[in-house]
Simulated assay, not measured.
Amino acid sequence: MKIVHVISTLDPVKGGPQAVVARIAAAQCMLGHDVHVISYAGATVQEKAFRTAAGIPEFEKIRWHLLPDADRLERVTCIKGAKLISKVLRFADFVHLHGIWEPILLRSASKARVAGIPYCVTPHGMLDVWSLRQKAWKKRLALSLGYRRMLCDAKFIHALNSDEAQLMRPLGLKVPMVVIPNGVFPQEFEQHGSQAPFREQIGMPAERRFVLFLSRLHFKKGLDLLAHAFHSVASRCPEVDLVVAGPDDGAQDEFLAIVRELGIEHRVRLTGPLYGASKLQALSAAACFCLPSRQEGFSLAITEAMACGAPVVISDACHFPEVDTAEAGSVTPLAPAAIANALVAVLENDRLARKMGENGRRLVMENFTWPIIAGKTISSYRLYA
């Protein structure tokens, strides 16, 4: 099959969907398909995106069609994007759109529809109840101006978990929902390398342990909740610090203000974004991974943490109940006290932490790998085409 993926940007700082597109495309290439990706990515973004994807198997087989970073006019009109889309969609068998609120996706859906090419949409959590409440009037307007039709004309909506599929029901979309999760390439996690370079990078002594948060520094990721939770953890586990890794997406200043107010700034370290070997070293070195998010579609960071053998503490809004059922960590409500208690339970019991890490790695390697996931996407394309 000739498969075309479309996403608005490849910039890694924008979060998980960018990493997902590169990996699902590569996995489909592994299955022998002709896979193309359309996106905006200027020279700087392209270099960064390709560098962070260096360990992905079959990455070099993906056919990239990249436009310069979109200026304000292009973001609205998608004039250059439309020309590229028309060219790449020739002889395509299926189009896979990633995201929602971008003109390049609307244009791609329109051109696919006119050409009689089936397509699906992966919202990546952008259509659940919490997300639709953010800037709600803009999203209602966008739906009325074409985005609802984009969704309704799709052959199916690709949800990342069953909770996400249910949380989209209020939209009343008469489109099949297909649940396919994200995953990992086992090859990326076979050798993590020494933890020492990461510890040296952030000045963390070998005798100190740390809880790791690794995601965008955005309000929805629950950094404020984590700050209050770690205030409790810090007094109960004096040898444990908090490491916060990720690009600032508007929440860093508030987080630092809370940390200073609580008087725990000497126990908290910010690293900025981590990619490649540094990310894997950090995940492998962490005593526990924590993501108390207010909303997730399917977090790659949680899956990667488990693949590295780290026990995880996540919120129920991460929609990853398998963590609990597989005893790979704890799923907590969005409350600092509950998050703190779950973290302390892991940090004070080495045997439990080790067992959780082993269970998590087994869960991921047996159920959440890209070759399996790619096969499910291909089956869905053929079923609904």
Rank of each mutant, 00 (worst) to 15 (best):
G15Y: 07
G15C: 06
R23S: 14
R23Y: 05
Q28S: 08
C29V: 08
H36V: 05
A41P: 11
T44H: 13
T52M: 06
H65A: 03
E74K: 04
I79P: 00
K80V: 00
K80C: 06
L84K: 09
K87L: 06
R90S: 12
D93S: 14
P103E: 15
K111Y: 09
R113Q: 13
P118M: 08
S131Q: 12
K138D: 12
A142K: 14
S144Q: 14
L145C: 15
Y147A: 12
D153W: 13
L160Q: 04
G172F: 08
G172M: 02
L173A: 09
V179C: 08
N182F: 04
G183T: 06
E190Y: 08
E190T: 09
H192R: 11
P197M: 05
E200K: 14
I202S: 04
E207W: 00
L214E: 01
K221Y: 09
K221W: 10
L226N: 01
A227E: 10
A229T: 04
P238W: 14
P238T: 10
P238G: 14
V244L: 15
P247L: 05
D248Q: 11
G250A: 12
D253Y: 06
G263P: 02
G263S: 05
I264V: 13
V268F: 07
R269M: 10
S278V: 12
S278E: 15
S278Y: 02
S278H: 12
S284D: 07
E296G: 03
F298Y: 13
S299N: 04
I302D: 04
M306K: 12
P311W: 08
V312N: 05
I314F: 08
D316C: 10
A317Q: 15
P321C: 14
P321K: 08
P333V: 11
I339Q: 01
A340E: 03
D350H: 07
K355N: 03
M356T: 00
G357H: 01
E366I: 11
N367T: 11
I373C: 04
Y381M: 10
